[in-house]
Design a protein around this nucleic acid. Structure first.
Lengths: 141, 141
DNA sequence: TCTAAACTTGACCATTTTAGTCAGGTATGT
DNA sequence: ACATACCTGACTAAAATGGTCAAGTTTAGA
């Protein structure tokens, strides 16, 4: 399974964006400063978010990024998938088409990981950016 | 988050053990052959399982491992913790005591990962070895 | 008692992933 | 025109992963 800082950064940045893009686009520099994430790394992340139509951007002075949908329409699933944090559980070896580990049958834990994957994805499908905004609306940071 | 092959191997091996240790202890060599897991790697894994009192062993010819409890008393949580597959979500930076990323406050996603962690742990606490045995009792492998 | 099977321990390592950095762009509002 | 901001791709240090290798110790059974 994969679920690392990159996914966390993406979510943090988008929450930041959701709170500040109401008037003008938000520059990555501002997000970088507020959230303590490297600017160069943010650019990589936003490149993916843009490809996946989660954010849009305008260039030039006073340019920046803004959400392409309303916060309640952006699910965490969308964000994590966009930055390649696919919530996939351990893969059984890929060489075999039907089974795992080169055997003819599925390994004994195969269904288990499938089930877990669903369990986690459900969690992320229910949560939207809006949910995170609510919980943090009073915070300064 | 961490959840890799090591955890999967541990679960696979223990399901195997649960099915074959009814008469005699099971050697790692047998498990290695049946499950397609490197013997040397299995030894590392079982060393941890033993330290955590999930299995016991006898030495010598015809020796091997056996479960120290009944399958329905061994939860997946126990197994995964034993092999250091702690289901921990991404850590916010550790230097700061109160907040994340060196800020005074918790980062906006802090509670989210906590919640996810609980969500996943609940899943693993409900599942026991016995549950996996049931689903696979008819399989040959 | 001898020996092979099996457990035990610890060091080592190749590969992959992660979390970035660096260097150079291109576009555009003022 | 120029500063600001987006955009792209190559690169990399450090850590994690998924093992291997070597050198034991222990003990059942011939």
């Amino acid at each position: 399974m994969k679920l690392t800082s990159k996914g966390r950064y993406a979510v943090m940045a988008l929450v930041d964006l959701a709170r500040f893009d109401t008037i003008n686009p938000v520059s990555l520099r501002d997000i970088s400063l507020r959230q303590g994430i490297s600017l160069d790394y943010l650019e990589q992340i936003f490149s993916k978010l843009k490809k996946n139509q989660i954010v849009k951007s305008t260039r030039g002075t006073q340019g920046g990024y803004f959400l392409s949908k309303k916060p309640n329409e952006i699910k965490l699933t969308n964000i994590l998938n966009a930055v390649d944090e696919k919530v996939k559980t351990v893969q059984c070896k890929k060489e075999s088409k039907k089974g795992c580990n080169g055997k003819a049958t599925k390994c004994v834990t195969h269904d288990l990981w499938d089930e877990l994957e669903t369990h986690i994805n459900t969690f992320f499908e229910k949560k939207s950016l809006q949910d995170l905004l609510k919980n943090n609306s009073e915070r300064v940071n």
